[in-house]
Design a protein around this nucleic acid. Structure first.
Lengths: 111, 111
DNA sequence: TCGACATTTCGGGATTATCGAACTATCGTC
DNA sequence: GACGATAGTTCGATAATCCCGAAATGTCGA
């Protein structure tokens, strides 16, 4: 259950966070991770037609931007959005973004 | 004073908007454009140490994402944030982003 | 121990970003 | 009107980044 390295809360900056969210696949992953914390990588990516190696890069970008934490749990990685750190460092930022992402995804059934 | 082509309000999507804002130079340009609408390209880029050809690309990305309008005014281009379209299509999105960008830039004097 | 599973790493090809140099268009001036 | 100066864009080459198949890593269950 050890965690993977991730940047400290106080070292997070806005541009990398927006960059990480500025990709349709990552935005959808973040939306799902927010809705179901402690899910595994493959569970969150279910149905998306994206190869695993590409997903692994997406998770890395999201982790390095500070959006998520990953912990090794057996042969899985559990994804947890860094909700507290994000609302501490960027108050009011994620709520509207995720709300709009939900709204958009409910139109585009299949992303 | 003719406008340059830009995507219609209803065709704007979230990911390109976040992508456009997910670069430190563009985020700063957007912050300045918001503070001083109808400014010219060079006025907004003043002090940033970024070559003109690179800036031109940044403006294009921001225009294609729907963040700004550009109108040709003599030998200048005037930049106007598409505030109405953005708040119509993405209500509640830009305010927190720009507020946080202002807060961050007041720490990092020189970007 | 062995094989299946979940994910990462590696490597190469494809896309995108950067920026100097040349170009376009417009204004002010003579 | 011709000319230089001004404000941006386009072009082309190099650099950085992204994408994804194949191989590798680490873990579980039998």
């Amino acid at each position: 259950m050890r965690p993977l390295p991730e940047p400290a809360c106080e070292s997070l900056t806005l541009a990398p966070v927006l960059h990480a969210l500025g990709d349709p696949v990552r935005l959808e992953l973040m939306r799902r991770a927010w809705a179901k914390p402690e899910s595994t990588c493959s569970a969150l990516a279910d149905g998306l037609n994206v190869p695993m190696s590409t997903l692994s890069n997406h998770w890395r970008i999201m982790r390095e931007a500070g959006l998520i934490s990953m912990t090794v749990d057996g042969r899985h990685r559990r994804i947890r959005p860094r909700a507290d750190d994000l609302s501490d460092r960027f108050p009011g930022l994620l709520d509207p973004i995720l709300r709009l992402a939900v709204a958009e995804s409910s139109n585009n059934g299949t992303l």
